[in-house]
Structure formats: C-alpha cells, structure tokens
C-alpha cells in the first residue's frame, strides 16, 4: 500500500505544482486534487527499504520499484491524460476501481475484452505491474 501512496502523491503533487494548465478542462481537474505534501517530504528523506520487490524476476530495493511504477504510470498519462484524467475520448484512469483496472488489463491481454491498442500494452506488462499501476490510479481521488 505504501509504495503506491508515495507514487500517487507524487503524481498528484505533480499536477498541483502547475499554476496553470494547457486547457481549461484540465485546470478544473488539477484544482480538485488534494494536497499531498507529507508524502513528497517522505520521499525526499528516502524510501524505507524494509521490503524488497521484484521486477522481471529480480529483487530490488523498494525505491527502485517506486521509480519503476511511477515511470510506467507517467507513460500511461501520455494517452490517458495528466494525472490520469483524460481530456478526450480515451478513458480516464484516475479514481477507477483497482480490481476493475486489474481485470481490464487481464481481459485485454487474453483478448476477452476487445481493444484498439490496450492488448498490445497488456501483454507488455506483468501481473505485478497491473496491480501496482491499478492501485496507483485507483488512489487518485
């Protein structure tokens, strides 16, 4: 839980740091995101490393997994919009139910759910990454 809290708050902080945004629609979204200050301070102090994590089958320090998840999440935003809030027909990820997002990725991967590009993304990520990303986006309120 902690891992994604850090990441989520980072992303939220990210949008808050912007005084203005490209589009009016985005500005409303940014204004609605709650202040995340404590987690940013925590991150600067260093991520606690009590629990190793796995990426590609290898154990890593916790901070590596935080960075890994954070960066993939930032990739998602290219299509799904700043802080997971889309400015168009591509669905928003922010605030979606975690179980729904994980199930969606699994269904995209298997082809059970039709998609235009998401199957190609779903096969590129691991089940653990589905979980971490889903938790992150679910926790953006």
């Amino acid at each position: 839980m902690k891992l994604n809290k850090y990441v989520t708050c980072l992303l939220a902080a990210a949008s808050l740091a912007a005084p203005a945004t490209l589009l009016a629609a985005d500005a409303t979204v940014v204004a609605a995101i709650p202040a995340p200050a404590p987690a940013v301070a925590d991150l600067k102090a260093g991520i606690p490393e009590e629990k190793p994590c796995l990426i590609a089958g290898w154990e890593n320090p916790r901070s590596v997994c935080v960075a890994h998840t954070k960066t993939i999440a930032a990739t998602c935003l290219i299509c799904h919009g700043p802080n997971g809030r889309s400015l168009g027909a591509i669905p928003s990820l922010a605030g979606q139910d975690k179980a729904y997002l994980v199930a969606a990725m699994k269904d995209f991967k298997s082809g059970k759910r039709e998609s235009t590009v998401m199957q190609k993304y779903a096969v590129g990520y691991s089940d653990q990454e589905y979980e971490d990303l889903a938790e992150l986006f679910a926790s953006i309120k």
């Binding site: 991520i47 990426i55 320090p61 590596v64 890994h68 954070k70 930032a74 990739t75 290219i78």
Partner: peptide
C-alpha cells in the same frame, strides 16, 4: 524524457535508478 527524469532524480538523491525501464509507443 520521463525515464531520464526519473533516473536523474534517483541518481541525484543517491539511489539506484530503475534498471528495467519500459517504453510504450503509440
């Protein structure tokens, strides 16, 4: 750009950057 930024933040803060970055292209 995001992978590079994340790596530099880790490096500047004395941590290891993510050795397994992932790129999506659409």
């Amino acid at each position: 750009a995001k992978i590079c930024a994340a790596a530099l933040v880790e490096i500047f803060n004395g941590r290891e950057p993510d050795p397994y970055p992932v790129i999506g292209s659409t």
